[in-house]
Simulated scan of single mutants.
Amino acid sequence: MSQSDVKAARPLSPHLQVYKLILTMLMSILHRITGAGLYFGMFFVAWWLVAVASGPSYYDFAMGLFGSIIGYLALFGFTWALMHHMLGGLRHFLWDTGRAMGPGIRDKLAIANIVGSVVLTVLVWIVVLAVA
């Protein structure tokens, strides 16, 4: 047997074209994306805290940016990422206990994660806008 025959008999690693995107796979990707978004979004939280400590004029400048349409969209996205990541973490915590591992319940929890994150985000913003 030649060396080329041995290499040909080895299985190839699966490629992305082999995998079918399923809901739990998508949720894993979204969990990582929201985690990265929260990491970079904390820059704005730190900037806001610096603005609070810097005095009224700089605070007014920062609030002017956060109060713009783009600022509201960024804050809304940050809120959604926070809620989605939190619910995903609770879902993983549930799995760490050995519960909810069946195929049907995994998909239901993934859908509940999406719906819950949107509902919680909207509720938080209703409260924020009502108080402001």
Rank of each mutant, 00 (worst) to 15 (best):
G88E: 05
L30N: 09
V45K: 03
L49S: 12
K108G: 04
W80R: 01
G64M: 09
I70T: 06
A130K: 05
A36D: 00
V45W: 10
L87G: 04
L65Y: 11
A53W: 12
F61R: 03
Y39V: 05
L21C: 05
V131Q: 11
D96H: 11
R32T: 06
V18R: 06
I70G: 03
L21Y: 10
D60F: 11
V127H: 10
Y72R: 08
A74D: 01
F43R: 06
W47P: 00
I114M: 12
L21S: 07
A132W: 07
Y59M: 07
F40C: 00
F40T: 07
F93Y: 14
L73I: 13
L120G: 03
L30I: 15
F61Y: 14
A81M: 15
F44T: 07
I111F: 08
M27F: 01
R32A: 08
A8G: 02
V115S: 04
V131H: 13
D107M: 13
D60T: 06
A53Q: 14
S28P: 02
L73R: 02
Y39P: 00
L75F: 08
L90Q: 08
L123M: 14
P103Y: 11
M25L: 12
L30D: 07
K20C: 06
A132S: 05
Y59P: 00
W125R: 03
I126C: 07
L21T: 10
V118S: 05
A36F: 15
Q17R: 15
R91W: 08
G77Y: 08
A100Q: 02
G104V: 10
G116P: 01
A132F: 08
K108M: 10
H85R: 05
W95R: 07
K7Y: 14
G37H: 01
W47A: 12
L16T: 08
L21N: 06
M101D: 12
S68F: 04
G98C: 03
A9G: 02
V50H: 04
L26Y: 02
M1E: 10
W125P: 01
A110E: 00
G41C: 05
Y59G: 00
V119T: 13
L129T: 11
L120S: 05
I126Y: 02
G55D: 02
